[in-house]
């Protein structure tokens, strides 16, 4: 760096340095360690090189395979939930008249973002409670007692109960992203389309959707990352049970590392998740190509 640049930007670099050092020490270094330890039998005290053993164990483990299939379901449904429902909500609010009503609805959808996630999870755990839960009580009131279940306690329903957690799935961040993008659309195009005879559906599918592709890309990537990393709601709502019915790889990774000190095996699962996220992200970027 020449003297002029150093004089001009030196202070900025200095301010950036501590943050970068923290990121390097507490994020990049553990990630590199995890890559290394995924090839070892590591219990925090001793580490022994075992080559691909952890990865072979992982793919040979029937629980992991169940978890992987579950993860596909979680991720696909998470992506659908993160795109479809917030988009519908954003479109509807955009369409309704009156800034005050728009503001009220917008605030109503965003306010739940302020709630700690754990509160929402516990709330839904209570909704699903087989003895006192809202869902079973509503079904009983409607005369559908035979439809009641121990939603989180039966292996046929536990996974889907977790999938339907937070219905109607209008997550604050995707909603905001879509709403902001729709608000920024050029009204000239839409008015021109209307003059040419386009109906509402055609405006939505031919103008709105293509315009929102970059937003779909961002939301999809963020959702995939979040979905593959998430095991908190499974852990809190069901403890991973019944059996392995709703389990996912992140849950198995947590159990291996922190439940039986198999940090090497846990690292192998973590590395695999990282590679899957990377591959899906690259695929997503290529598939949903945009000019910007």
């Amino acid at each position: 760096m020449n003297t002029v640049r150093w004089k001009r930007y030196g202070l900025s670099y200095l301010f950036l340095l501590p943050s970068f050092l923290f990121i390097a020490v507490f994020l990049y270094y553990p990630v590199i360690l995890a890559f290394f330890h995924s090839f070892t039998d590591w219990n925090l005290v001793q580490s022994k090189w075992t080559g691909l053993h952890n990865f072979r164990t992982m793919f040979g483990d029937s629980s992991f395979r169940t978890g992987a299939v579950n993860q596909v379901i979680y991720t696909l449904t998470d992506v659908v939930k993160a795109i479809v429902f917030p988009l519908i909500a954003a479109e509807l609010i955009f369409l309704i008249g009156g800034p005050r009503i728009k503001y009220t609805f917008r605030t109503g959808f965003i306010l739940p973002m302020l709630l700690p996630g754990i509160v929402t999870i516990l709330l839904w755990q209570n909704i699903y409670d087989p003895n006192n839960g809202l869902l079973n009580q509503l079904l009983t009131l409607a005369g559908l007692e035979s439809w009641t279940h121990a939603w989180l306690g039966e292996d046929g329903t536990a996974l889907w109960a977790i999938v339907f957690y937070n219905f109607p799935f209008i997550a604050g961040l995707p909603f905001l992203i879509f709403y902001a993008a729709i608000g920024n659309m050029s009204q000239v195009q839409i008015v021109a389309a209307r003059i040419d005879g386009a109906n509402g559906w055609q405006v939505f599918t031919r103008i709105h959707l293509p315009f929102l592709v970059p937003q779909f890309k961002v939301v999809t990537i963020l959702t995939i990352i979040g979905s593959l990393q998430d095991f908190v709601k499974i852990m809190v709502m069901t403890g991973g049970g019944p059996g392995v019915a709703p389990s996912n790889p992140a849950m198995i990774m947590y159990n291996a590392a922190f439940g039986s000190s198999q940090y090497g095996y846990g690292s192998a699962i973590g590395v695999s998740l990282f590679l899957v996220i990377l591959a899906l992200t690259l695929f997503n970027m290529k598939f949903l190509k945009t000019d910007y």
């Binding site: 087989p130 279940h149 989180l152």
Partner: peptide, 9 residues
């Protein structure tokens, strides 16, 4: 047992 015993804390 109570319904949901498999995951009830």
């Amino acid at each position: 047992l109570q319904p949901g015993y498999a995951t009830m804390k």
